[in-house]
Write a protein that binds this DNA or RNA. Structure first.
Lengths: 347, 347
DNA sequence: TTGTACGCGTTATCAT
DNA sequence: ATGATAACGCGTACAA
């Protein structure tokens, strides 16, 4: 097991002041101090004495000991696959918002590694987090089910997971993708490739479906030969763009389904000496700050990261406070930021 | 206080299996189970019974209860100012490396807000983290001193803080900056501006000194009128570049001391229609993935993020395991990535 | 090698 | 409104 106590005698640690110390110097019982700490009525003179004692001892309540009784550590687990721009922003917002609710955040970064995901669940369990926030993915379904079964709320983002009593925050992947690709169609593009993330992910499926819907609506044939799959990474985006570039009949536009894959695609195009949008138009899912600085600037679908964080926070807090819910679903709209990476096709 | 227990009855939570349950169904005493869990010798048949019992109960030790006795929660606090690319990378590496050592990570993002920093210290204290990782900054000196005084190791990165028994991991800010600016001087640039972060930060001072040293070595006068200060942000980088651009005698090159300020500077130049490196050469501190995709690609000083994380982890772990140290200092070299944002000046 | 029993710091229940 | 005291789950002397 990962926790072993043989070493680490915690020797250097000075004994922290306890509620008993405070009670003693305040001349009251620990019960009174505890009630004071938890916001109950305390006689005025006692309150003042307690406050003085707390001050003089530099006392801070131990959340650990508190959790022994209450089974509530005021701490949630946040599991992210990596720290790309999207997750970094989400993490920053989430940590801050949760803290305002009195919740600390235990972070785990699993790098899409199955063993690490397992390990993450273990950490969160032994540390007794009050709730768990993570992306939904099928491989984790059993573990999530266990967690929920144990009474710990789980809030998912990105991928919904049916059949579990968990809440989920998503963005309008289908709608946003459809609009993005419709934009390309309206510019006269008829051969539009798509660089998609792992299609076992619900998110990737939705984005692909949006792409297909837009083409159909434009009266175009969705050519399966123009769908290039990868695993959300820059590396795979590079490879996918390469295959798209070498396709029988080269597409005039491409819809890339994540920022990292867009980085890869752009790198490939740069290596090829291809120019955007002259040689090929491009629209990306995920807006990142730097797209504004690229040449050309990149047209992208912006996810409302902060609102996602807020929604997650709201769901977590309500689960923690209230009795019970059915699984809830929040679906947030995205914004399409039009920039210069697309051009109208001469007809 | 932020922890209030009036609400949140933790009602939904099912009672987790405890060591007592395991002992009962294994037909041994809790002492034996505990010893098994902590890796001591246990008679073979007992061990097998215990393992079966653990399995059947789905038992996972409570780190919380464990911490009551051992005063060790196997959890460290990580305080970051924000989640820019540097900190995101650091966080990802650190969280992963610490976990391998059996340590979970409690994250706090203070946004350079003084009140939030205070709050961060409070969270880490009430949650009884075993160690604390953060950037060194003077305003926090007193709180850090308290933490260290209480016996909790603190490891700083970026800024050293003298007079405290803490370890620190830095990069060779002075040397790297000097080399970066020397590169500009060697290309024939004589009027080199610097966009620096907050000079109350030791890091900013070092980078500025490196800049000055390089100019002196090249026999150039370091013009104080070419030093433009800001607060590490994109916004301030934009403004600083603006002032540099409007300087009496416009610089032919600029050394920007952080990635975010570089973003700002580039945005300004773009807004002006100025071309890099034709109109002005640029070198940035901090390398980010996207610099490779910019046009032109940006020459930059790359901090060894993963090695920083490793060093921090090493320092934390050794402090946690061993008795006592004097404050240690790790100084890591940076690499200069030459790209296309500078040009040789005609002489 | 094992079992027993106490204590860690806090909350919560009971009397008062 | 307050004080005394029993839990909470675990680690660890101590005795066996």
């Amino acid at each position: 097991m990962s926790i072993s106590n043989g070493r680490r005698p915690a020797r250097g640690k000075k004994r922290q002041a306890t509620i008993t110390d405070v009670a003693a110097t305040a001349g009251v019982s620990i019960g009174t101090v505890s009630r004071y700490l938890n916001g109950y009525q305390v006689r005025r003179d006692n309150r003042e004495e307690i406050e003085k004692a707390i001050e003089s001892h530099g006392y801070a309540r131990s959340a650990v000991a508190s959790a022994m009784k209450t089974d509530t550590l005021h701490m949630v687990g946040l599991m992210v696959p990596n720290c790309d721009e999207f997750h970094a922003g989400l993490l920053a917002s989430l940590v801050t918002l949760l803290r305002i609710e009195g919740l600390a955040t235990l972070t785990y970064c699993h790098g899409n590694n199955q063993a690490s995901v397992e390990d993450a669940f273990n950490v969160f369990r032994t540390h007794r987090v009050d709730a768990l926030i993570m992306t939904g993915f099928d491989q984790a379904s059993n573990r999530i089910s266990e967690v929920v079964g144990g009474g710990t709320p789980v809030v998912l983002y990105d991928n919904e997971l049916r059949g579990l009593n968990v809440d989920c925050v998503k963005v309008e992947n289908f709608e946003s993708s459809r609009r993005a690709v419709r934009h390309l169609a309206e510019l006269g593009h008829e051969r539009v490739a798509v660089i998609t993330g792992n299609l076992s992910h619900w998110t990737a499926q939705q984005r692909l479906r949006g792409y297909q819907a837009a083409l159909e609506e434009a009266g175009l044939q969705a050519d399966p030969g123009l769908v290039f799959q990868g695993y959300w990474t820059k590396h795979d985006g590079y490879a996918a763009m390469g295959r798209a570039w070498e396709a029988d009949k080269r597409p005039t536009a491409v819809f890339s389904c994540s920022a990292r894959m867009t980085f890869g695609a752009l790198t490939f195009l740069k290596d090829q000496g291809a120019r955007v949008p002259n040689d090929i138009s491009l629209v990306s899912f995920d807006d990142v700050e730097m797209f504004e600085l690229f040449d050309p600037t990149i047209t992208a679908v912006a996810q409302p990261v902060h609102r996602i964080a807020e929604s997650i926070k709201d769901l977590v807090v309500s689960r923690l406070n209230q009795e019970e819910f059915h699984s809830r679903l929040v679906n947030l709209p995205c914004e399409i930021i039009l920039r210069n990476s697309t051009r109208r096709l001469q007809s």
